[in-house]
Design a binder for these strands. Structure first.
Lengths: 214, 214
DNA sequence: TGTCAACTGTCAGTCGCTGTCATTAGCCTC
DNA sequence: GAGGCTAATGACAGCGACTGACAGTTGACA
C-alpha cells in the first residue's frame, strides 16, 4: 500500500531500500525452501539487519507473504470503480478481474518481478497456514467489494444483502480458480486468467440448474 | 471425529474423560476470556495434566476450537448423502444444511452442550486467527461436498468443474451467513438457521440479475 | 504377580513475536 | 560544521505455542 513514494531524504530512501530488500529476500526464501522452513532470523540475516528490525517493518512473518497481494487487491478495487454503471454487478466484477490480470505488471513490477509474485502466489496456495490467512484476507476484500457494488447500485450494504450475496458467490468461484491454478503446473499469468474466466462463465448456468448444457 | 466410542477398558475410558475434560475446559475458557488470552497452560492446569499431555490429545490449541465443528460437518455430509437423487444439487445442499441445523443436538449433546458450541462458533467468527483457520477448514469440507455432488450427478470432479463451482457459490453464501450471524446478538440455533435459509434463497435471483424483485 | 506397553511428566530447546533500553546516525539549527 | 534532536537500530530478556528426548507411572494381560 505504502510501498511506493520516492522519498526525499536519505533516511527515507534507506528505509525504502531496507523494506524492499527484506520483502524480496523473504519471498525468495519462501519460494525456494518453503515458508515454514524459513525463519525470520534467516530473512533478517540475508539483509543484514537484526530480527527486531524485521518486525519493525513487518508486523509478522505472514505480512511479507501478502505485501504484494495487497497492492494487487487495491488495484482491482480501483479498476472495479471505473467500470461503467451500465454493466450488471456481476459483469463489472468479471471485467475488473480480467483487466487486473491483464495489467498486473504495471502495478507490481517496480517492487517485485511478476514471476516472483506468481511463485509466491502458488506457494501461498500450497501452504496450509498461509491458505488460512489468504482466505481471511479475501473476506476482508470481499467486504470492500460489496460496498463498491452497493454504491454502484445505490443500495445500502447493511440493509440489503444482495451485494454481499453476489460478491460471496463471485469470490467463492475466484478462490476456487486460485486454488486449482495453484495445484497445477502452469505458473503463468495467462493460465490463471484463463481459469478464472472460464469458471466465472459457468456460475450462472450452473446455478440455474443447466447441468446438461454443453 | 473419533470422539465417541464408549471404550471398553479402564484405560480407554480414562483417556476419553481426559480428552473431553480438556475440550470442555478449553471451550469454556475460550468463550469466557477469549481465545488469545487463554494459554495452553491454563487449559492443562484446569484439567490437572501437564501441558505436554494436552499436546498429546490435540495437535494444536486451534484444534480444540474446531473439534466440535468437525463432528457437525461430518454429520452434514452424511445427511447430504441421504438426499433424494431427484433434487438438484443446489436443492439437496440447501435441504441438508437446514436439516443439519434442525438436528444439531443429536450429533453434539453427548460431548458438549449445544449452547457452549454456539458460543464457541460465535467466538470463532469474532477471532481473526480462528476465522482464518475456519475458512481453510471450510474449503476442505467444500472439496468433500463437491465429491458427493459429483457422485450424485454421475460426474467426475477432476474433469467437470460444475460440482465445485456450485459448491463454491453455495459455500460462499454459507460463510456469509455465518459471519453475519456471528456479528449479531442472537446466539440461538434458530437464528442462524433463519439467516442461512433466507440468504440461500436469494442466490439464484441475485445472480440472474433480478435485483429489482421484491 | 510380574512383565510389557501405553500414558504421562519433566526438561530443554526452537521459533514467532514483544517490551525495554542503550546506541547509532540522519537531520536541522545556529 | 559542531552540537542537539529524534528516528532507526541493535542487543537482550521474556512469553507462549509447540517438539523431542528421557524417565517414571500405571493399566493390560499372561
Amino acid at each position: 500500500m505504502k510501498t511506493q513514494e520516492a522519498g526525499s531524504g536519505l533516511r527515507e530512501r534507506k528505509k525504502q531500500r531496507t523494506r524492499d530488500a527484506l520483502l524480496r529476500s523473504a519471498l525468495e526464501l519462501f519460494t525456494t525452501k518453503g515458508y515454514d522452513r524459513t525463519t525470520v532470523d534467516e530473512i533478517a540475516e540475508a539483509v543484514d539487519v537484526s530480527q527486531r528490525t524485521f518486525f519493525r517493518y513487518f508486523t509478522s512473518k505472514e505480512e511479507t507473504a501478502f505485501a504484494v497481494q495487497d497492492m494487487v487487491e487495491s488495484r482491482f478495487i480501483a479498476i472495479l470503480r471505473e467500470r461503467p454503471a451500465a454493466e450488471s454487478p456481476f459483469e463489472a466484477l468479471r471485467a475488473a478481474v480480467l483487466d487486473a490480470w491483464d495489467t498486473l505488471g504495471e502495478s507490481i513490477e517496480e517492487v517485485v518481478p511478476v514471476e516472483l509474485h506468481m511463485r509466491t502466489y502458488q506457494m501461498i496456495e500450497s501452504t496450509p497456514s498461509l491458505i488460512a490467512v489468504h482466505l481471511r484476507r479475501s473476506t476482508e476484500v470481499e467486504e470492500e467489494i460489496a460496498r463498491v457494488i452497493a454504491e454502484r447500485e445505490g443500495l445500502d450494504v447493511e440493509t440489503d444483502p444482495r451485494p454481499r450475496v453476489t460478491v460471496a458467490a463471485f469470490s467463492g468461484v475466484m478462490r476456487l480458480a486460485g486454488r486449482l491454478w495453484g495445484a497445477g503446473e502452469d505458473i503463468s499469468v495467462e493460465s490463471i486468467r484463463a481459469v478464472t474466466e472460464s469458471y466465472l462463465d459457468q456460475l450462472g448456468p450452473v446455478l440455474a440448474g443447466k447441468w446438461r448444457a454443453k
